[in-house]
Design a protein around this nucleic acid. Structure first.
Lengths: 234, 234
DNA sequence: TTGACATAGATTGTTAACGATCCTTTCCTG
DNA sequence: CAGGAAAGGATCGTTAACAATCTATGTCAA
């Protein structure tokens, strides 16, 4: 079980993929909020590329549900609905427990080291109170599990699911616990290290259900206070 | 569990999505063989669209691994390797048994009717010896299971997986049994109808493993006789 | 003051032309 | 005759200009 490309060397990639990855990261660390407009011009000057590259990047992001393209109006960071959230968590609960179990059975030393290092980085970020980094690393843990499984397809699928989860949390997250709970990743890693596939699977499922339970679909969407801020006297 | 859009009304779709769907279908019924070149010009005149739409469609197809874009050389129908095949079947075995079990638990009457009708169409096509239709419907059964689950994300994911499986079978299929076995879909449907989630899950897994076992990775790729045909005297 | 309407600006969608790269054919040379 | 180099053709990648659409501002009338 070789870990192929833990570091995706940003250099050897075509430009639009770089743009896509940067936007993915921004969404994952909740720098880009749902409904944020991503105009072509913005992307062109932000990344120093032509309009063609920008449009290709936006099309790719749209095909993965990260942005929404409205005709003649531009691209906006997706704003998932409750039903979108249900789909995403349902899909993750179908995939991740089974995948985590497989990883527990077949992981090698290099994969184990990658996961351990990641947990260390998570702890460091948490200790440093670097919220954005904590959120991003929390999400990427799940992608990393797929990566160490060696399955490129599932890695891409999970990257998409995790990113959409980040948008869902941005929309419906209930306040402070807007990222994964403290030690759940560590406990999953322990189960993997002990080759306990059943426990790893259970922990993964519970972890996802915890994230889901921390959502609150009753409150009005978090990203509508634009209206409020516009109504303020200034 | 409402079945939302069993018929994707080809009319109300933007043009590039129509192109993508047509190519999907062609791959599914093995009209388009791996490594087939899809030049921009071909698509432009085939669908009567501008080069821009053609390029967008090809980019979408590439992002889903159906075609491969080579710089300055054009788009080619993907030719999966053995390792690609392993990834696809691994992913399907992670997803489909669990998904089928869920469908067995939660399916409603409309979903049951959709699946039953589909099986009927499969039988009719088989009886009529319409090979292309049999292959296409066999693949789409798996997509339909995802559709009746009501999960749009998994539906898209399975459409991609099934299409790639079709390419894999085109590359490595061992002769005659190049499509799903006769009655396995029917047995899965029976388990679903009886709400036997465990059996449905098992049957789905076995079915996938049967498809996988019918592959033969030893033989030279099916789509290299281009070399042979070039060597013929003519 | 409020509402509708018209105009101006900005942004996206499309097309066409140009430049770059690759493949094929041809021709030259050993 | 074989090998390689160069020219030609075809295809893709990019850019720039144009057309279409939407948003916002401003005006006028009720």
């Amino acid at each position: 079980m070789a870990v192929q490309q833990l570091k995706e060397s940003d250099a050897s990639l075509n430009e639009e993929q770089k743009i896509v990855n940067r936007i993915y990261s921004a969404v994952m660390q909740q720098t880009l909020a749902p409904m944020t407009k991503l105009s072509e011009a913005t992307i062109c000057e932000s990344f120093g590329v032509g309009r063609m590259k920008a449009r290709r990047a936006l099309l790719l992001l749209a095909s993965q549900g990260i942005v929404e393209l409205r005709s003649n109006r531009g691209a906006f960071v997706a704003s998932p609905t409750k039903s979108d959230a249900d789909e995403v968590f349902e899909a993750r609960i179908h995939i991740e427990p089974s995948l985590t179990a497989q990883v527990a059975e077949r992981i090698g030393t290099s994969g184990l080291k990658a996961l351990t290092d990641h947990i260390d980085r998570e702890k460091a970020a948490r200790h440093a109170d670097n919220r954005q980094e904590v959120i991003r690393l929390s999400g990427e843990f799940h992608v990393l599990v797929a990566t160490v499984s060696g399955n490129g397809f599932l890695t891409r699928t999970l990257r998409e699911l995790v990113t959409r989860t980040s948008l869902i949390v941005a929309m419906f997250g209930s306040g402070k616990s807007s990222c994964c709970r403290e030690d759940e990743h560590e406990r999953i890693l322990e189960a993997i290290r002990e080759r306990d596939a059943g426990r790893a699977s259970d922990l993964a499922r519970e972890h996802l259900e915890h994230i889901r339970m921390d959502l609150d679909f009753k409150k009005t969407h978090k990203t509508e206070p634009d209206l409020v801020s516009l109504l303020r006297s200034d």
